[in-house]
Amino acid sequence: MNEPLLQVRGLTVSYGGGSVAVDQVDLDVHDGEVCLVLGANGAGKTSLLRGIGGFAASERGRVRSGKVLIGGADVTGRPPRTMVGHGVVLVPEENKVFRTLTVGENLRAAPMTGDRGSRRELLDEVVSLFPFIRERMDLPAGQLSGGERQLLGIARALLLKPRLLMVDEASLGLSPIAVRKVFDSLHSLVAAKGMTLLIVEQNVRAARAIADRAHVMVSGTFALSGPAREVLESEQVRRTYLGLEV
């Protein structure tokens, strides 16, 4: 097998020099793979994504030890903007859009690369993936529904041409219909563009359809890892995340 796109080795993330949120995690994500991270609240899933995607200087979070490699290049502890340059784009859990900017301005705020023609092409392609954008162009993003905000966040991320797209809790706070919409979009992204995804999700049923590999996170470490089918069928996951309905 080729070298993984993302290699994480012994990653430890802490906040304000104190509490450790991610403890010595190893993770590989290969090109074109969809990797799912499961876990309870506070297990360290968000911190894992932030540790990979980088912290801004104004934040308390730090990568304390370990390595993050993208395509073999060491990018450990780089700020988010540098990570975007390396093709790692995060759609964060909360505040995924600029609420005071209109939908159109949200898209324009993304610094796209390439010549004018290719930028135009990519923008059209992304807008056609999420048709609601065209109708809401001049609406402040804060007035969108939760599902639309989620999709706009993903759309903005796609304009940055990610090699690895990380989505944190795409289904959080959404209605079942909205969840379906978001995951249909993610699904078509994977199917059409071969997008590499690293997603954190509590809604296992929504994620099951697209995930190739899965990891269960418990207090900062991976308690269980493997092919998504096996992990999601395991007794532990069924009991904890799927309840009796499945």
Binding site: A56, V84, V89, K96, F98, N106, R108, A109, A110, P111
Partner: peptide, 24 residues
């Protein structure tokens, strides 16, 4: 202007702006 829009974006949420590739 695109630069002006990015300035407003960074003013609203500098962390998200950085995550969105804006040179804060």
């Amino acid at each position: 202007s695109t630069t002006g829009i990015r300035m407003r974006a960074a003013a609203e949420n500098s962390v998200l702006a950085s995550q969105g590739g804006i040179a804060v």
